[in-house]
C-alpha cells in the first residue's frame, strides 16, 4: 500500500471525467429538464389563465342571457300590446263595417220595398184597369175613362 504514480493517473482520469461530464452530459440533461419545467410551467399558467377566462366568459354569458331575456320580455309585452291594439282596431273597424253594411242593406231594402210597392201599385192599377176593362168593355170606352183610372191608381 504505497502512494505512487497511480495517484497522478487517477487525478488525470478524474479530471477528464469531470471535463466530459461538464461538457457533454450535464448541460444537455439540465437543458432538457429546464425546458420541460418551463413547458410545464407555461402549460399550468395557460390552464390557469384559461380557467379565469372561462369564469369571465361565464359571467359575460350570464349577463348577455339576462339582457336577452329582458329584451324578449320587452318584445313580448310590446307584441301583446300591439296584438291587443290590432284586435281592438279590427273590432271597431268591424263594428263600423257592420253598421255600414247594415245601413246600406237597410236602404237597399227600402228602395226595393218602394220599387216593389210602385210595381205592385202599377200592377194593381193595370189589374184594376184590366178588370174594369173587362167589366166595362161592353159599355165604356177605354180611352174616355183612362185618365180617370190613372188618377185613381196614383191616389192609391
Amino acid at each position: 500500500m504505497s502512494i505512487n504514480v497511480t495517484l497522478f493517473a487517477q487525478m488525470l482520469v478524474f479530471g477528464l471525467l469531470v471535463w466530459f461530464t461538464m461538457t457533454f452530459v450535464w448541460p444537455l440533461i439540465r437543458g432538457a429538464m429546464e425546458e420541460r419545467e418551463k413547458t410545464i410551467a407555461d402549460g399550468l399558467a395557460a390552464a390557469e389563465k384559461g380557467q379565469g377566462d372561462l369564469k369571465q366568459a361565464g359571467v359575460e354569458a350570464g349577463k348577455i342571457i339576462e339582457e336577452a331575456r329582458d329584451q324578449a320580455r320587452a318584445v313580448l309585452s310590446k307584441a301583446n300590446a300591439r296584438a291587443n291594439d290590432i284586435v281592438e282596431e279590427a273590432r271597431s273597424e268591424g263594428e263600423v263595417e257592420k253598421r255600414k253594411r247594415l245601413d246600406s242593406a237597410q236602404s237597399e231594402l227600402e228602395v226595393e220595398i218602394n220599387r216593389a210597392r210602385d210595381e205592385l201599385r202599377q200592377q194593381v192599377a193595370t189589374i184594376a184597369i184590366v178588370g174594369a176593362e173587362k167589366i166595362l168593355l161592353r159599355e165604356i170606352d177605354e180611352v174616355a175613362h183612362r185618365a180617370f183610372l190613372d188618377q185613381l191608381a196614383a191616389d192609391l
Partner: peptide, 14 residues
C-alpha cells in the same frame, strides 16, 4: 459512467 450518461444526454428530450 460517462458512456451511459452520455447516451441519455445525447438523446435527452424535453
Amino acid at each position: 459512467f460517462v458512456g451511459t450518461f452520455y447516451l441519455a444526454a445525447r438523446k435527452a428530450t424535453s
